[in-house]
Computed example of a mutant assay.
Amino acid sequence: MKKLLLAFAIAIAYPTFAADRGEVLYQQCLEQAGTSSETAKATCADKTSDFYKKYITEYYLEIFDRFQKTNPVIASNFENAQKEWIANRNKECKTKDNPSLCLMQQNEQRAHELETMKDNLSLADETAEKESNPTEVITHDKVRRVYIFDKREIVEGDGYGPYAVTYSFSTVTTGIQWLDDFLLAPYGEKKTTREEIKKEMEEDFQEYIANIGGISEHWNKSSITFDEQKHHIAVFTNHIEQYFGGNYIIDAYHKLYIDLEKKLLLSLDSLFTPSNLAQAKELLWNTFQNSEQGKEFTIEKSDFEISGDFEFTPDGLEFKYGQGSLLPSVFGPVSYTIPNEKIELLLKPEYRFLLIYDI
């Protein structure tokens, strides 16, 4: 059984997130201390060691839970192996001249092993799923546009007019039934039918006309288009155009990344582990603070949220905020980007290939 566990722990080609960040943390701590004395080394080692412990716990629990669901015997052996490692680590480091440095190095190695084991287990699960459920392939010649609702009516409003009110929602058919059904609801958040969407939009349309005011055209348009397929991820764009009077027109493009194997619309929870999502939020907060808008308009850090509207661009992972969602409406829509080199190791390994590098 130990051989099995060791086999899963074979190192992968790139550095792990925990190891990479831990080394930076240790060096920054020494630089801030302004000395490389044994006391400073021990203090910084303790701080970095705690950082590794956090990831050891996270990875261990994830692996144990996976084993517990598939094979309780392996889970029990894995638990015993972890307890044995802790005992051996503590025993060995007690004999060292600098126990803190020893603990840091041991924890770094274990974090690396567990992260690699976790990634390899995920890869094994994905490979098995691919063999039983081959990835669908979407080609542009198969894609067809279909209008679910498209209505335009000339109305009078408050004694003015006539002017037009337009409601429209169009999507695409791909030849993959579950995916076509998935795309029916705006943003793919839920499954519904064409008839349900038509009924809902007709009710909204009639209600809006009955209560309309103003002297200008009004419209609410949404259209989904197919962009490309990258391995098992199908990329679509939802273009939303809205104007209901006043000074502002909404003209927004939202990317939809759909995992064809998992039948899942990628979200922040899909792309990041909870701890890595927290790291990404911190990076985004710093980016916002250093931006022109962040310097001009101050918000409390506790009020800052990471946007679920994201896009992979050549500059990095871009997070978009609609008009008025983060800053006052006068700022319009805004977006902030975390560069590829900073976001790459935060992403789950299976989705890092979505990053676009501008060569």
Rank of each mutant, 00 (worst) to 15 (best):
I258C: 05
D358P: 06
E341K: 14
Y163D: 07
T166R: 15
N120K: 10
S291F: 13
E228L: 14
L61I: 00
F64G: 02
K281L: 00
D119C: 05
K190W: 09
G316C: 03
E189F: 14
F8Y: 15
E31A: 15
K230M: 06
A185S: 12
N80I: 01
L260M: 04
I74Q: 07
L264K: 13
E196H: 08
H239M: 01
G213L: 09
Q105Y: 12
K151L: 11
T298K: 13
L266E: 03
H231K: 14
G245K: 01
L346W: 05
L5W: 03
S223H: 00
L4Q: 11
A33Y: 00
I356E: 01
H112P: 09
T95A: 15
K221H: 13
T57Y: 06
P134A: 05
N98A: 10
A124S: 10
D158Y: 00
N290R: 15
T127A: 08
A128S: 08
N286A: 13
V73H: 13
A111D: 03
E311K: 10
Q293S: 15
Y60C: 02
Y59G: 04
E31I: 14
E195D: 07
F51G: 01
D309W: 04
L347C: 08
G324E: 02
Q289Y: 11
Q293N: 13
I224H: 02
S325V: 15
I74T: 14
E344M: 14
T48P: 03
I209M: 01
V24R: 12
W178H: 09
L265V: 15
Q242M: 06
A9P: 05
D150K: 10
K142E: 10
G246K: 06
T39I: 09
L266F: 01
M1H: 12
K342S: 15
S168E: 04
E79H: 13
L260T: 02
Q206A: 14
K83W: 03
E62L: 00
L183W: 04
G332R: 03
E58D: 07
T313A: 01
L101M: 10
E241I: 09
Q68W: 00
N88D: 15
A164L: 02
Q105L: 13
D119M: 12
I250A: 10
I154Q: 14
K151C: 01
R152H: 07
E195Y: 15
L114V: 11
H231P: 08
V146W: 07
T166M: 11
H239V: 05
S307N: 08
D50A: 11
E341W: 06
Q323S: 08
T57W: 00
R89A: 05
C29L: 02
E318F: 12
Q109P: 07
D141G: 08
F312K: 04
A124D: 00
R144I: 10
K198E: 06
A19I: 11
E113C: 04
G214N: 07
D227F: 08
S122Y: 02
S302V: 12
P339D: 00
L30E: 03
A278K: 14
Y321Q: 02
Q109K: 15
K262S: 10
D315E: 06
L327E: 09
T35P: 04
P333D: 10
F78L: 03
Q177W: 13
E296I: 07
F226R: 03
K263G: 02
T70I: 10
I86V: 07
I258H: 03
H140I: 14
H254V: 05
R194T: 12
K91Y: 11
F149D: 05
R352T: 07
T273K: 15
I74Y: 12
I56G: 04
M104C: 09
D204H: 04
P339K: 03
E38F: 11
